[in-house]
Amino acid sequence: MQMLTCKHISKKYEGDGYALRDVNFSVPAAGIFALIGRNGAGKTTLTRILATQLSPTSGSASINGIDVMSGAGSLREIIASVPQEARAINWLTPRQFIFSYLLWRGYGHGDARRKADEAARKLGISRFMDTASRKLSGGTKRKVLVATVMASEASVIFLDEPTTGLDPLSRSELWDTLSRLKKDHFIFLTTHYLEEAERLADRIGILENGRLMALGTLDELRGKVKYPYSIKILSDYSVAKPRKGNMIKGVDGFQQIVTTEDEANRISRELIKKGVRFSMNPLSLDDIFYYIVKKPLEEESYGDEKERY
């Protein structure tokens, strides 16, 4: 049995266009699944459908063999979610919030208290437990929410951008915690930090404009890319179209060529001759992401491209 299966999931918001179009995939086993994609790609929409918070317009999905629509009652017994825009309730302290959440899940008082303390320790927020949430920093508030669901017995956890707003150290600590947790949990997370997906995820899905563009382990994703080399043009210079490969606007706004190793060598010699500053590297996950998500430059004018960022 697959851990997660999505069959032809589409979502059209009332009066708006499609946020998801025929999304089809499955994730075989527990561990961490990371969904990446640009703003508006549909990550939150898909996460909410799987967490039984939103109905799909068509299609079906199941987690651990339980259908998210018809089996919602039993599925809700084993899931927990931190929505993208969730906030710890202003008038509660983290202790009160986590405690209430666990009571809502049906814990007895003693267990709820113990679990809340334990989770707070794991996420390094013990000393904030009795400070009103409204007085906490943004990142600490985020940690409170992650601690809240981690304190529970849920075996399937949805985290919609859990590390947004966390400082680099805290982020890395949360990664460690999630790595430990993934041994006996299924964690579905979305993120804009590709390094996070790279470090944590057993499988990565790339969503763009409501469509699943690619899915697999990091190695599988690398294997999907036709052109493993990247050249970034760092000067103000218009390069000619490569004989093989594509021109895209890269991560940092520079013109970028993705191509084969041979063609990369040829282009680099040309650029050196012309005195153009550039860098050449094998593709990183960032590059893979941009390669998969972005249309080749020639299909769009620069002006439009800029507006999309």
Partner: peptide, 22 residues
């Protein structure tokens, strides 16, 4: 307020607490 500003309803929906109990 709890639903829209804190997303509490979403958190409770994705949990064993039913609408009736809430």
């Amino acid at each position: 307020h709890l639903k829209n500003d804190f997303k509490l309803q979403d958190m409770v929906v994705a949990s064993p607490t039913g609408a009736g109990m809430y």
